[in-house]
């Protein structure tokens, strides 16, 4: 066996034989998926109730809207607006010539977003008759806004699970191998640092792909009903890139920490807040604007976006290249910091 293969094997066996790391990497995120899936199953299906004032051509012509919208017809705009303000309805719509007006509530941002998305699409469709490209664009938009909960939760939780797995895998290996003097022993063997690191990368990528397979498998069960888009397999490069970044983060944590407890603490401190702020648990749509822009400095945000794009938003393979580039850029910078912090032993 080559050194690369035997070291990856040693790491994988060490991982598979450790019940707690198996639990935290595979089962724990899956528990979240089941939990969130159950909590949000109904919410995702609940229709947005809107009021239509007067005739609205795009609504009257579009079939199948009943899946998303529950439309009530009224004549008095002011009264309808008041009902929206009261929270009984999400939005009021009316048509004045070529102009569609949508008055929506700020209280239920998620459903208001859905309605906005639907109308954006409908108007786009109406405008773009005979211009296929624009039509496609608008369709994507509405896909996004009308995501069922599981469609949003799966890529998010998967991003989080992969980030956790990669960060902890790298941090723990580094610290325990240093503590248990395996790194010093490896230092005495004619094996390059690059081989040791790439063996760990190989092991982590393998684990991440297994995580992905299990996650998508469970989420696609009828009880959760995940619908993957055509290009979902493009999540593989995204998963690999995400694994690389978070391994680099783990290496930084492992480089800073002397004990495995400290490494776990540092890794948690980095990954958990990042998960919340990157919108992996809850959409950031309703978060303040500054938070939404802030979230862009987190690699997990881009990982999450990339996953959403290819897995459920149905974007084509090329569309994730920018996110992929950003993620790998993060990986490079953090990786360099990790190299700088690397220590063979505590002496």
């Amino acid at each position: 066996m080559t050194p690369f293969r035997s070291l990856s094997r040693a790491m994988l066996l060490g991982f598979l034989r450790d019940r707690s790391s198996l639990f935290f990497t595979i089962l724990f995120p899956l528990m979240f998926l089941v939990l969130f899936g159950a909590i949000f199953t109904n919410q995702g299906l609940a229709k947005a109730k809107i009021i239509q004032v007067g005739p609205v051509a795009i609504l009257d012509q579009a079939p199948g809207l009943g899946e998303i919208l529950e439309i009530t017809k009224q004549n008095d705009l002011a009264a309808a607006q008041e009902q929206v303000r009261q929270g009984d309805f999400v939005a009021v719509v009316r048509q004045q010539g070529d102009r569609y007006q949508l008055f929506y509530t700020a209280a239920d941002q998620v459903r208001a977003g859905t309605v906005r998305g639907v109308f954006g699409q409908l108007v786009g469709q109406a405008n773009a008759a005979g211009v296929p490209q624009r039509f496609t664009l608008a369709a994507e938009q509405v896909e996004d806004k009308s995501l069922k909960a599981i469609q949003y939760i799966t890529p998010g939780l998967l991003s989080w699970a992969i980030s956790m797995g990669a960060t902890f895998g790298a941090a723990m290996t580094l610290v325990t191998w240093r503590q248990k003097k395996i790194l010093r022993r490896l230092r005495l063997a004619p094996v390059s640092t690059a081989t040791v690191v790439s063996a760990r990368v190989g092991a982590s990528v393998g684990i991440a792909l297994v995580q992905t397979a299990i996650f998508l498998g469970v989420a696609s069960l009828p009880m959760f009903g995940l619908q993957l888009s055509d290009y979902w397999w493009m999540c593989v490069p995204v998963v690999v890139a995400g694994t690389l970044v978070f391994m680099a983060i783990g290496m930084v944590a492992g480089g800073l920490a002397k004990t495995s407890e400290a490494a776990a603490g540092i890794a948690n401190l980095i990954v958990l807040p990042m998960a919340f702020l990157s919108g992996t648990f809850f959409p950031l749509d309703s978060a303040p604007g500054w938070l939404q822009s802030l979230s862009n400095i987190f690699p997990m945000k881009h990982l999450n976006e990339g996953m959403l794009d290819v897995m459920v938003r149905g974007q084509g393979p090329a569309s994730i290249l920018p996110e992929l580039g950003i993620i790998l850029g993060f990986g490079l910078v953090i990786g360099l910091i990790a190299v700088f912090l690397f220590r063979w032993d505590d002496v």
Binding site: R9, A10, L13, G14, K181, I182, L188
Partner: peptide, 24 residues
């Protein structure tokens, strides 16, 4: 080199340990 403090890969058997070192 045999170090004063034994250094082994975690959770590998004796055979797996020495085979891993041998492969290096």
């Amino acid at each position: 080199v045999q170090l004063q403090a034994s250094s082994f890969f975690e959770r590998l058997t004796a055979r797996e340990q020495i085979r891993t070192f041998a492969s290096l």
